[in-house]
């Protein structure tokens, strides 16, 4: 784990993965977003100046996790938002409502470490574990 974080970037031969642990399903998703932002923007930090609403629907929580992370990929690629944090308002079994905050990409202060094509469903998981929740995804780079 990165110091001060509960997410970790994990190895893959061609791509990379993200895993996180937290004490609730909402918190683990928020940590996964921090991991994704670290993967895309490296050590660049953003301040919360603007927000975007994320509403995704899917058949189960794992699909919601992947869909939500792909929303973050989309907003990051547009350049409208270097995310600083995700706040989950409601995480139901087939619907997720969240707010992502951050600021527009500023080449003076932000750098792009890698382009993420997409967050994949390969070995994606969102599991309740003793004392909290665990999530993992692999991303295509």
């Amino acid at each position: 784990m990165t110091p001060g974080c509960s997410f970790r970037l994990i190895e893959h031969t061609a791509d990379m993965g993200i895993e996180a642990r937290a004490d609730s399903r909402e918190a683990v998703l928020e940590e996964m977003v921090q991991g994704l932002v670290a993967l895309i923007f490296g050590r660049s930090r953003a301040v919360p100046r603007v927000t975007a609403e994320i509403l995704v629907r899917a058949e189960d929580p794992v699909e919601l996790l992947v869909s939500c992370l792909n929303e973050v990929v989309y907003w990051s690629e547009k350049g409208d938002l270097v995310p600083s944090a995700l706040h989950v308002a409601a995480f139901r079994d087939s619907e997720l409502l969240a707010t992502i905050s951050g600021e527009p990409f500023d080449p003076e202060r932000h750098s792009i470490e890698r382009q993420v094509k997409s967050v994949t469903y390969h070995q994606a998981c969102l599991d309740e574990i003793p004392g909290g929740w665990y999530a993992r995804v692999y991303v295509d780079l």
């Binding site: 899917a58 058949e59 699909e63 997409s118 469903y121 390969h122 994606a124």
Partner: peptide, 25 residues
């Protein structure tokens, strides 16, 4: 690809296709 993975996840359920990995939907 991302849009149609969602379509295919639903399709796999609809047609009873057992997936060893969701990404193979």
């Amino acid at each position: 690809c991302d849009d149609y993975l969602k379509v295919m996840l639903r399709a796999a359920r609809k047609y009873g296709i057992v997936l060893p990995d969701r990404q193979l939907c």
